[in-house]
Amino acid sequence: MASQHNPLARMFPGRHRQALDPEERNVLDKIESKLPIARDAADVADERSTYGQRLADKVAAVGGSWSFIIVFAIILLGWMLLNSNILTHWGLAFDPYPFIFLNLMLSTVAAIQAPVIMMSQNRQSQKDRLAASLDYEVNLRTELEILRLHEKIDMAIAERLDRIEARLGLAAQNDGQPSA
């Protein structure tokens, strides 16, 4: 195993396998085992996420949508119409103008929604870092494979040139000898 890693590890100037980053070691391991390295960052992030992180993503997705804004605006307008005109007419308004209870509810929603959205944004930045790391692994593997292919092609060309030189050398020797 280590013997296969050594030529690849030498492609990292001045560093031994133990000094490589985890991503670089992962690439070498995948090359050795002939497994693909490419993975979907979203799938990997979802595998690593907790229930709270997935919930924060869903809340942020709903709270940051036009449907939420439209439905929320309709509810607010309905609340204000009910408590200013319709229920006031019968003396049943539970939150008359200036809508103090509505203000309390809106403040509570904002106080809860803001940190949840921040959690989702932090998670998105973690996903972006993960995607960058996975991209680095794929790019590194590609670069190493291209270097290996260059070496193979260079070796094949050198072997072919050696065979041609050997044939030319034999032909020159045969041309210099008298015929029997």
Rank of each mutant, 00 (worst) to 15 (best):
D128L: 12
A131W: 06
R129V: 07
L134K: 12
M105Y: 11
S107E: 11
L102T: 04
R123S: 09
A131M: 07
E137W: 05
R129G: 01
Q124L: 09
A110N: 03
V138P: 02
M118S: 09
N139P: 03
I117P: 06
Q113P: 06
S125R: 12
M118F: 13
D128V: 15
D135Q: 14
D128K: 09
I112Q: 03
A114V: 07
S107F: 10
P115S: 02
L140D: 01
A111E: 10
V109G: 05
S120Q: 03
V138C: 10
Y136T: 04
M105W: 12
D128H: 05
Y136H: 13
Q126R: 14
A114Y: 11
I117S: 02
A114L: 13
E137G: 12
I117T: 02
A111G: 15
I117G: 09
S120W: 09
L130K: 06
R141T: 00
V116G: 05
Q121R: 14
L140Q: 06
L140H: 03
R129N: 09
D135F: 09
D128G: 00
S133I: 09
Q113R: 01
Q121H: 08
S125P: 00
S125H: 00
N122E: 02
N139I: 10
A114H: 03
A114M: 13
E137L: 08
R123F: 08
E137V: 00
M119H: 07
V138I: 14
V109H: 03
S125V: 09
L106Y: 00
S133Q: 14
M105I: 14
I117M: 00
I117W: 01
M118N: 11
V109Q: 06
L130I: 10
I112R: 07
V138Q: 06
S120M: 02
Q113C: 08
A111Y: 11
A110S: 07
Y136E: 04
A132P: 08
N122K: 12
K127R: 15
R141P: 07
I117R: 03
M105P: 04
M119W: 11
A131K: 07
A131V: 04
L106T: 04
R129K: 15
A131Y: 01
S120R: 01
N103M: 10
I117A: 02
V116K: 00
R141Q: 15
M119G: 05
D128Q: 11
R129L: 08
A114D: 02
L134I: 14
M119C: 12
K127I: 15
I117K: 01
A131N: 08
D135A: 00
M118P: 01
T108H: 07
S133G: 13
S125Y: 01
R129W: 00
I112N: 06
N139C: 03
K127M: 11
S133W: 08
M118Q: 03
L106S: 03
R129F: 08
L140N: 01
A131E: 05
V116N: 04
I112T: 01
N139G: 11
N139L: 05
A131P: 08
L104K: 12
V109A: 08
D128P: 04
V116M: 08
K127V: 15
A114W: 10
A132I: 10
L106I: 02
L104V: 09
M118K: 10
N122P: 08
V138N: 05
L106N: 10
S107H: 07
A132G: 14
P115I: 07
